Amino acid sequence: MTTAFDTTAQAPQYAARPAETNGFSIASLVLGLVSILAGFTFFLPVAGVVLGILALRREPASRTMAIWGIVLNSIMLAGAVIGALFMLVVGAAFLPFAFLGLDGIPLGDALPFVGTQLSLF
């Protein structure tokens, strides 16, 4: 007795799933950590927030890293803005005293005495 087997039948072929990338979320998280270590910068946190938002939309598997990247970069961006505003306020507060000499005489008023000998008696 012979059995007929179909030797041409193959196992079903499935399309390979594209590998999920999480480059945006990793980049956002790394930029957040670097901006903490590199001091108060402005451009690194902005790029990190943008990459984190893109990662939330494009990479659902790496949502946690994207959220942490957004949080770290937002905190550092807020710190940079607050620091810049503080420096502007301090600079504006000391601006009236910028043109005084060390002895309290305005610099323009001290010019007639340059090169002359002053005697007290």
Rank of each mutant, 00 (worst) to 15 (best):
Q117F: 12
A11K: 12
A4V: 15
P106V: 00
A19W: 07
A110V: 04
R63K: 14
Q117I: 14
A9W: 05
G23T: 08
L29W: 03
P18H: 06
F94H: 12
P45N: 07
L120T: 10
F43S: 14
V81W: 05
P60H: 08
V90Y: 13
A19Y: 05
A15T: 15
W68E: 09
I105K: 04
A19S: 07
G101Q: 13
T116S: 12
Y14A: 15
N22M: 06
T116P: 01
T7F: 11
A92M: 09
A38F: 02
A11G: 06
M87T: 12
D103E: 11
V49I: 14
G115Y: 05
L56A: 06
T64I: 13
T116V: 12
L51S: 02
V46I: 15
S28N: 06
E59L: 08
Q13R: 07
L88N: 04
A66V: 00
L54E: 02
V46R: 00
G39E: 03
I67D: 02
F5D: 04
A38S: 07
F86N: 11
G69E: 06
V49D: 02
L72V: 03
A15R: 13
F121Y: 13
F40N: 12
G91H: 10
I82Q: 04
D103K: 10
I53H: 00
R63Q: 09
F24V: 02
E20G: 00
L100V: 03
A4H: 14
F43E: 08
A61S: 13
A9K: 09
F5M: 06
G32H: 02
G115A: 05
L102G: 15
F43L: 15
V50M: 06
S35L: 03
R63V: 10
A16G: 09
G23A: 11
P96N: 11
L118Y: 14
L107N: 05
R63L: 07
L29K: 04
G83R: 08
A4I: 15
M76P: 02
A38T: 01
L102W: 14
V46G: 01
A78D: 03
S74N: 05
I53Y: 01
G104C: 03
F86L: 13
F86G: 07
G79I: 06
T3M: 04
R63P: 11
L77E: 01
P96Q: 12
G69R: 07
G23Y: 09
M1R: 09
V46E: 00
I70S: 08
Q117N: 09
A55F: 06
G91C: 09
I105S: 05
P112N: 01
